[in-house]
């Protein structure tokens, strides 16, 4: 890839926060770096991956609305976590977290326990308690 071939296809994935250095050849055939805001094929695969993630969040949201899962499951997905990560952040066992996905168990959870989740999800306790899905 030559300097003038370094793509500049901006899909705002970097939000203007920085540009990425790409290694390319200058006119003498020597390598240097050129900053790039993006490349279309790369933008497409990144967006495609996020579509997959967002679909999963939406599926979970529907299950929560049908009361088949507790809001903890929704917020976990929304924070791109899995049970292992959520357990590590809250300090609960993985099987405990899984139990908290059940509506029946969730409804009986103490404020102290809910607070731990709220902190990790960076939401207000009331939001979680009232099963609001932000």
């Amino acid at each position: 890839m030559k300097n003038n071939e370094v793509p500049q296809d901006d899909a705002n994935l970097l939000e203007g926060k920085f540009r990425e250095p790409c290694y390319a050849l200058d006119e003498q055939g020597k390598y240097n770096t050129i900053k790039s805001v993006g490349w279309e094929p790369k933008n497409i695969v990144i967006q495609h991956a996020w579509e997959g993630v967002n679909e999963q969040i939406e599926e979970t949201k529907q299950l929560v609305l049908q009361e088949k899962l507790s809001p903890i499951a929704y917020y976990m997905k929304k924070q791109l976590m899995d049970v292992q990560i959520l357990a590590a952040y809250t300090g609960f066992f993985q099987w405990t977290v899984k139990r908290h996905f059940k509506m029946k168990t969730f409804n009986k959870l103490s404020d102290t326990k809910l607070m731990k989740y709220a902190e990790v999800f960076e939401i207000e306790l009331d939001v979680l308690k009232n099963k609001k899905l932000l």
Binding site: M1, P21, C22, Y23, A24, P41, K42, V45, I46, A49
Partner: peptide, 15 residues
């Protein structure tokens, strides 16, 4: 898509 993400996403300097 994941293969290409690992190939191009942040940090590889391309390819």
């Amino acid at each position: 898509g994941q293969i290409v993400r690992a190939q191009e996403e942040i940090g590889t300097g391309g390819a």
